[in-house]
Structures are given as structure tokens and as C-alpha cells.
Amino acid sequence: MKWSIKIGKFLGIDVNMHLTFLLLIGWVALVHWQRGQSVGAALIGVLFILAIFLCVVLHEFGHALMARRYGIATRDIILLPIGGVARLEKIPSQPMQELWVALAGPAVNVFIAAALFFWLQATASWEPLQRLTVTTGPLLERLMAVNLFMIAFNMIPAFPMDGGRVFRAALATRLKYDRATRIAASVGRVIAVLFGLMGLFYSPFLLFIAVFVWLGATQEAAFTQMKSAVGGIPVHQAMVNEFKTLDADDSLQRAVEFTLTGTQKDFPVVSDGILEGVLRQADLVTALSGKSSQATVASIIRKDAASVESTEMLDTVVTKLNECRCDLLPVTREGKLVGVVTTDNLGAFMRIREAAAD
């Protein structure tokens, strides 16, 4: 993800931090300093927010390690000011697998909250809950309260929260997957409306949650509907045969010329017809600010970019386009490039099929 930096690799999974997270740390430090009027108070605030996000990281590792049990890898974990995201290579195909992967994250928070509870009991470190605020009260008790909040919030039965995936997985044990998704998304939209109405009278933060839930439900429903619509259709029926490619030895200047003289954003890079990788437009723009225009495209291509075999089904393409957040997938046959599928031509293909079916 753009504007992210790697802060470590644990159990084979990269952990990245979005740079906006630094703004949150700075804001928390300022709030605590204003209340305590000391550097010590500011440091306690920073320590508190770092402890919270350690819990978030552990939550995401819960998802990642459970997914690993089912043979699903995790590309990375990203820390954002609003939480964390474990980017799985794919969504579990079996409902019960999705259910356990979704539950694994909140289960970590249950364990953390329970451990803190027993520690506070053993040390008699309790403060009355009414005295707890964001900036006051024992740090460990505040951290326990945050974990309890994370459990409750994540188990709301609405996408993109874990509860939405648990709800969908439970429905999918009895219903078809796409119908289960539609029902879960509809429930999510209802919850979003309720949050929105409450936000109008109580807290603007609830309005933010309402928008977050509504968009998550809509996106999940659209993604599943698209996968269902193209299921059983081979990739070669929808791929584009006329497209531009770059050679691994071509210069960045040639890539710029291709970009400016056409509508294609990303370019497959080949060597003797064999796919070497993909040059994304964003990578080209970034490279031009620090490299000579005569540098070769081989120096900036994504060699691990997703591709698809021509004999695979289009629902695989939908999944891969969603996972890589890209506009183009190369189509190969026995390692050789034979076409591409783009988000634009896939959308056009679906519209034509829908029109023909009416």
C-alpha cells in the first residue's frame, strides 16, 4: 500500500505501518501533554496508543495464522489509524473456514482482556469504571477496556467487520454463498442506517462508522455478485487480444510514450514471449522522479504481479483483480502471454451478457 513503511517481519508476515499512523501518535501525545502539562504525560499517551496497536497487530495475526492452517497465505498486515488489515491471498472457500478465520481475531482480544482482568484482580489495581477516560486511569485497565470495545465493535454483524463475515459464513452453511452475502450485506446496510440516525443525535463518530459500514456492505455485495455472474465462463472468452507490451530491455521513456499515446495504464513486460512481470502506471510515475528516463523497465516491474491462465474461470479474475487492487491481469498459456483482462473490458463483457440475456 502507498505511504506505508515496513516495521518488521514476524512469522514470515510483513507488518507495515501507514504513515498517517504517525499523525495519530502525535495527536495522542499532544492531548496527554495538554492534560498533564509534562513530557512524561505525553510519553504515557504514546505508550498507551502503541499498546493498543500491539493488540491490533495480535488481532490481525489471529486471522493470519488461522488462515495459514487452511493453506491461505497472508501478503502483509497494515497498521492504519483506524485499525489494522491482514491482507489474505484469498477468502476461504469453505463457510466454516471463513467463520474460524473471522473469529480468530476477536478471540485474541478476548484472551488479552481476560489476562489483563486477572492481573488487575491479582494486584488489586482496579479503578471505578466511571473514572476511566482516554487520558486518565490505570493504563492496563484502560487497555482492557479498549480490548472489550474491539471485541464488541468487530462482532457487529456487518461488513467489513469480522462479525459480518461470521454472519455470512453461518448463513452460507445453509444457503448459497451469493445469497448469504446479499442477506449479510442487507443487514449491514440496516445497521449503517441505525448508526447514522444515532450519529445525528449523539456523536459524529457514529456517522463515520455508518459510512464505513455502508461502503463495506455495498462493496462486498457487488464483489460477490460479480463473481457469481461470471462463474463458469473461461477467461479466454473475455480477454483482450489487442494490447501493448514492453520488452524487459525497453526504456522508461518508451513506457511513457505508450502511456501518453493510448488508454492502457499498465503494461505486461515480456522477454521472448514469456511474461516477466507487469509495469504499473503508479510505479512508472514514481520511478521517473528518481531514475533516468533511459533506465530499463526491468528495474521497476513487478515480477510477482498476479496473472491468470486462459483456461481458468472469470470468477478467478474477479478475485485476483480485487486482491491486487489493479486494473490489468496478464493472461498466459504455458507461460506465454496470450492476452490481458482489464477492469474496463470485464465490466463491458458483463454488461453485454446482461443485455443479451434480457
Rank of each mutant, 00 (worst) to 15 (best):
K2E: 13
W3E: 06
F10W: 14
F10E: 09
V15Q: 10
V15M: 06
N16Y: 10
L19M: 07
F21N: 04
L22H: 02
L24Q: 10
Q34S: 13
G36Y: 08
L50A: 14
L50P: 08
A51M: 12
L54V: 15
V56S: 01
F61S: 11
R68S: 13
I72P: 10
I72H: 09
T74P: 08
D76G: 10
R87F: 02
I91C: 01
S93I: 02
V101I: 03
A104N: 06
A107K: 03
V108R: 06
N109F: 00
V110W: 08
V110I: 15
F111M: 12
A114I: 09
A115C: 02
W119Q: 13
L120I: 14
L120G: 06
A122I: 01
A124G: 07
E127A: 11
P128Q: 07
R131W: 04
T133L: 11
T136P: 03
P138T: 05
P138D: 12
M144A: 12
N147Q: 09
F149S: 14
M150F: 15
M150T: 15
F159P: 06
D162S: 09
R165N: 10
F167M: 09
A169K: 00
R174L: 04
D178N: 07
R179T: 02
A180W: 01
R182Y: 01
A184D: 02
A184H: 00
R189T: 00
A192H: 01
V193F: 07
L197M: 08
L197W: 03
Y202H: 02
F205Q: 05
L207Y: 02
A210W: 00
V213M: 01
V213F: 01
G216P: 01
G216I: 00
A217N: 04
A217P: 04
T218W: 04
F223L: 12
S228V: 00
A229P: 00
H236V: 11
N241T: 08
S251D: 11
E257C: 07
T263L: 10
K265W: 13
K265Y: 14
P268A: 07
V278L: 14
Q281D: 09
A287F: 12
G290F: 10
G290D: 11
Q294P: 06
T296N: 07
A306P: 05
A306C: 04
T316S: 12
T319D: 14
N322Q: 14
E323N: 13
L329Y: 08
P330M: 11
V331C: 05
V331M: 03
E334R: 15
E334G: 11
V338N: 10
L346N: 02
M350G: 03
A357P: 01
